[in-house]
């Protein structure tokens, strides 16, 4: 990669459950995220798409230090995030921030917007009273809200406005990276566009780096520079957004794109209803997409395909032995 990476994820893994009971029986374990390696460069937007249960939200929580990986490492500017989250969570929160999916439940119902937005100013950057006022005004201006909203309670504002407050809170301490976990999926389409436009404006204005997580392919396509497609806790395909969407290599990406409804698209191409989803407690040894894949062979069942460049472009990787649109091996 040409530029140095700001955020590096190296073989990150998060297992829930596991261990043994007091009688020595193994407890069931779920690999929410496994063997994920990727880099995010400064100033880019990395989109992460996948269906429910694919581990995208777990990945997001790992990046902001709300959860710790059980294996591998995540580093920001060369500093280990898991270690920072334990020793100096404030230093980490100054650099990485998070925007939640549900705008209303991420705001404390008993606090005014002012109190909510002041918290990071006080605890993260230790601003004095006077600077706080000035910064609050800046933040409200940045997310296009009238300053009157500062004295309202969360139940007195709409979902779109609440999400803008969530974004303002994430911006407050001037972070480098913002992880956006489904930031617009709880919003109406007209409000969704407002929020997406605000996010776009803020990115160029403050030189932010986004990790944008969504299940909505069209939203991810419209905001991302690069895209990672996740399936069953692993990356199925990663590459420049335009490449991945125009020329998907992993059959799963292809299926997703085929299934997505779009205005004007008359019929969707559904897959056979008989397909079985993999059991997270009993993961298949090979490719997790095996049972649903039209190209599957015996080899796919045996071993997990590595994430490799498939289409000649070094930046476009897919974890598949028999990629869509041309056999490789």
């Amino acid at each position: 990669m040409s530029e140095a990476a700001l955020l590096t994820i190296d073989r990150a893994e998060r297992v829930f459950g596991g261990g043994r009971t007091i009688f020595g029986m193994p407890k069931p374990a779920v690999h929410a995220v496994q063997d994920i390696s990727l880099e995010v460069r400064k100033g880019e937007t990395l989109g992460v798409v996948g269906e429910s249960g694919c581990g995208k939200s777990t990945l997001a929580r790992l990046i902001v230090g709300l959860d710790r990986p059980t294996g591998g490492s995540i580093t920001l500017d060369g500093r280990d995030i898991a270690a920072d989250a334990g020793n100096d969570p404030r230093a980490l929160a100054k650099k990485v921030q998070y925007v939640f999916q549900d705008p209303v439940s991420s705001l404390n119902p008993r606090k005014t917007v002012r109190t909510i937005l002041t918290a990071p100013l006080v605890h993260l950057i230790g601003l004095g009273k006077k600077d706080q006022e000035r910064r609050l005004e800046e933040l409200m201006e940045a997310v296009n809200l009238a300053p009157e909203f500062l004295d309202r309670y969360p139940h007195e504002i709409s979902g779109g406005q609440a999400q803008r407050i969530g974004i303002a809170r994430a911006l407050a301490a001037d972070p480098e990276v913002i992880v956006l976990d489904e930031p617009v999926s709880a919003l109406d389409v007209s409000v969704q566009a407002q929020v997406l436009n605000i996010l776009d404006g803020l990115k160029s204005r403050f030189g932010l780096t986004y990790v944008f997580i969504s299940h909505d392919l069209s939203v991810v396509e419209s905001v991302s520079d690069r895209v990672a497609v996740m399936y069953f806790g692993r990356i199925a395909e990663i590459g420049p957004a335009r490449e991945v969407f125009a020329n998907p290599r992993h059959p799963y990406t292809h299926l997703l794109l085929q299934s997505a409804p779009a205005p004007g698209r008359k019929s969707l191409v559904p897959e056979d209803a008989n397909t079985e989803l993999p059991d997270p407690y009993n993961p298949p040894p090979g490719c997790a997409f095996f049972a649903r894949c039209p190209n599957a062979t015996h080899k796919c069942k045996e071993s997990h395909p590595p994430l490799e460049a498939k289409s000649g472009e070094a930046t476009h990787l897919a974890a598949c032995y028999h990629p869509h649109g041309g056999e490789e091996e």
């Binding site: 389409v189 007209s190 409000v191 969704q192 566009a193 407002q194 997406l196 436009n197 909505d216 392919l217 069209s218 939203v219 396509e221 419209s222 957004a241 335009r242 969407f245 794109l257 997505a260 779009a262 205005p263």
Partner: peptide
């Protein structure tokens, strides 16, 4: 104002 798959360059025109 709805993003359309396959048209990433489309301008999102918020209401």
């Amino acid at each position: 104002c709805v993003p359309v798959l396959g048209e990433p360059e489309r301008r999102l025109d918020a209401i």
